[in-house]
Amino acid sequence: MLFFSYFKDLVGREVTVELKNDLAIRGTLHSVDQYLNIKLENTRVVDQDKYPHMLSVRNCFIRGSVVRYVQLPPDGVDVDLLHDATRREARGG
């Protein structure tokens, strides 16, 4: 559940979610669940020329299994905290 809690801490921040079909959507992280389903608000499509039909979308629900990458705000990544958390998880704690 490491990444679930990690993403939960980023709620309210601006992220870019890249889907496995190459569509990339930028928006405010509204919520995330245990399956890493992601809800975004105030969304905009990164490549608007290629996906004009997505322009009309302001909020969306993205299925966790279709997400390829989530780009995080640089200052939203606490490297030390993440190090500790991954070590704890690796020990099974």
């Binding site: 009309s56 979308v57 993205i62 279709v66």
Partner: peptide, 8 residues
């Protein structure tokens, strides 16, 4: 994969 409300 994805669903959304479209109002524009």
């Amino acid at each position: 994969s994805l669903h959304a409300v479209s109002r524009d």
